[in-house]
């Protein structure tokens, strides 16, 4: 198992390194970094000063070394707009996104697995129809449109929940509900397919021949096997939530990392953009390792 985890960790780490290289060179090769880092209306003197301070006149490789060195020390520089270190700003926003993703994923996991297992047990039954409906909606609906329609209906029209911002539980309802749809539909689909396979498998036949009750057959014999492909998709979806809540956060005025990123882009605050990407990538890196760990726990064929 150590070998498996080590291999996966190394491959994730390689990806992370590629990301760092790519971001650095993209930001250097697409033009003068001062254009990226400084506001559009910065004076020529400020630009020269910026170049001097950040050593932009040094050879590219020296710049890259310094950039990596700074990254290792978690030094992302200062947010130009806010005039404070970028990292705390990003971390605070990331905390919000993380909570949002965690709550959503928790609800999605429980709902998708239960409903998916029940749908697979009676193909064509009522649960199966619900599952098909949601997976279609999840794959077809643009979340920004759902979000604004939800605001019009539930916040403006009915006045049940606030339109945007943060605060008590009522502020979380709409963002979570909108974010819920896509991963729920996708994971439901995978759980269902995987459960149908598992329920049709030979070992479930054995369990039935042993006299195991249906409930135990589904949730003990089939589900654990069926979870293996599900975990992979759950990882992908969780990653998508960590980085892709951009739209929903923007619409609901939720102070997460996605909104921070868009705001920073519109304000040309590149240090913050960069820090946000790094923090998100690191979080996904850690999550991938956890996913692999879960995989190894569930499947003894990986452990031995």
């Amino acid at each position: 198992m150590q070998k498996f985890l080590a291999k996966r960790a190394v491959s994730s780490a390689i990806s992370l390194i590629f990301l760092i290289i790519a971001v650095f060179f993209l930001s250097r090769l697409t033009g003068d970094p001062t254009d990226l880092y400084l506001p559009v209306d910065a004076s020529q003197a400020a630009r020269d000063q910026f170049r001097e301070i950040h050593g932009l006149n040094d050879p590219l490789i020296v710049q890259f070394g310094r950039y990596v060195w700074d990254l290792v020390h978690l030094n992302f520089g200062e947010s130009i707009r806010r005039a404070e270190p970028a990292l705390p700003v990003v971390l605070q926003a990331f905390g919000w996104t993380f909570r949002l993703a965690l709550i959503t994923m928790a609800i999605v996991t429980v709902a998708a697995i239960t409903l998916g297992a029940l749908a697979a047990f009676r193909v064509g039954g009522i649960f199966d129809r619900i599952a098909t409906f949601f997976s279609l909606i999840g794959a077809s609906a643009p979340d920004f449109w759902i979000a604004i329609v939800a605001i019009v209906v539930f916040a403006v029209g009915l006045g049940w929940v606030p339109t945007s911002g943060v605060g008590g539980p009522q502020y979380w309802i709409l963002p979570v509900a909108v974010l819920f749809i896509r991963p729920f539909g996708l994971i439901l689909q995978v759980v269902r397919g995987s459960m149908i396979n598992a329920l049709g498998s030979a070992y479930v036949k054995t369990a039935r021949a042993k006299g195991v009750a249906p409930k135990k057959t589904i949730f003990v014999h089939a589900l654990r096997n069926a979870m293996l492909p599900v975990i992979t998709v759950m990882g992908d979806q969780a990653a998508a939530l960590l980085n892709g809540a951009v739209v929903v956060e923007t619409i609901f005025g939720f102070p997460g990392v996605g909104k921070l990123m868009i705001d920073s882009i519109l304000n040309r605050d590149f240090t913050v953009v960069l820090a946000a990407i790094m923090v998100t990538a690191l979080a996904i890196f850690i999550m991938n390792i956890l996913i692999d760990f879960a995989y190894a726990i569930l499947d003894p064929r990986i452990r031995y």
Binding site: S11, S15, G31, L242, M261, A276, I284, N288
Partner: peptide, 18 residues
């Protein structure tokens, strides 16, 4: 693997930014 580990929407955002 590398492309997948990039947050894809963020990748789009940053490239279109630059």
């Amino acid at each position: 693997d590398v492309i997948m580990s990039f947050p894809s929407l963020l990748l789009a955002v940053i490239v279109l930014y630059m």
